[in-house]
């Protein structure tokens, strides 16, 4: 029946919960990631939850540009209409200052691979489709503690703005997702404060955003206001803060 949802980085905790919400609606799903065993166990779960069909795509690695086209080629045969790009890593900022390999690798995964994927998909999605990408509120203002990650996420936002503008006439919606703090393996080492939400909550908000009509969605909404305040701080003052 309906055309499938393509989920890239499908083993991300947030993306898995979003996929569950699509499965419960009976949608078909295409799952991409680097670890097929993991994806198979997610696929079994999604089938039980009601997905019409679930297919695990050939593995790709965000740090390996050549692994991306074969994965997408298989995906495009199934004519996906909606896409969620979720993969990413939170690199150790200090390590990136010392180790250029780790630094470049994080950019490959968080930035380059995402653009590479979007460049291919922009010519292939049908009208009415949605291309959703998980960026981060960290991309809205650089801070000394995570500017490498923030730069990649911020770069994504600028790219997505342009692409949104470009694809508007074709009726394809480009959705920038801006999570704040989400309790996932990525943040396992961070002490959980009251601003954290569960991966399940984030997944369901992403699902709702993909079915909605907005272009930029904060996960959850209150980060819009937090970031507004943070962005109001003059740079001359901000550069002195230890954030």
């Amino acid at each position: 029946m309906s055309s499938p949802v393509l989920i890239i980085g499908a083993s991300s905790a947030m993306a898995e919960h979003c996929a569950r919400a699509f499965a419960e609606e009976g949608r078909s799903l295409l799952l991409a990631g680097r670890d097929s065993t993991k994806l198979e166990s997610i696929a079994s779960d999604l089938r039980l939850r009601g997905a019409a069909r679930v297919q695990v795509l050939p593995p790709f690695d965000g740090a390996d540009a050549e692994s991306i086209p074969p994965m997408l080629e298989t995906a495009l045969k199934e004519q996906p209409r909606d896409v969620l790009i979720a993969h990413g890593i939170l690199p150790d900022n200090e390590a990136c200052e010392q180790d250029s390999e780790a630094f470049l690798r994080s950019l490959d995964i968080n930035f380059r691979s995402v653009l590479q994927i979007c460049q291919i998909l922009q010519h292939q999605l049908p009208a009415g489709g949605c291309l959703a990408v998980i960026s981060s509120v960290a991309g809205l203002r650089g801070r000394q503690s995570n500017y490498v990650y923030g730069a990649a996420k911020g770069g994504l936002l600028t790219y997505l703005q342009g692409l949104r503008n470009r694809l508007q006439p074709q009726g394809i919606r480009v959705l920038s997702l801006l999570p704040g703090f989400v309790d996932t393996p990525m943040t396992a080492d961070i002490t959980k404060g009251p601003l954290f939400i569960s991966a399940e909550k984030a997944g369901s908000l992403i699902h709702r955003a993909m079915k909605g009509t907005r272009d930029v969605v904060y996960i959850p909404f209150f980060w819009r206001y937090i970031l507004w305040v943070i962005r109001c701080i003059p740079e001359a003052l901000f550069k002195r803060l230890s954030l």
Partner: peptide
């Protein structure tokens, strides 16, 4: 809690 997949039914 994060280990919560359905395996078979």
């Amino acid at each position: 809690q994060g280990m919560d997949r359905l395996c078979q039914f």
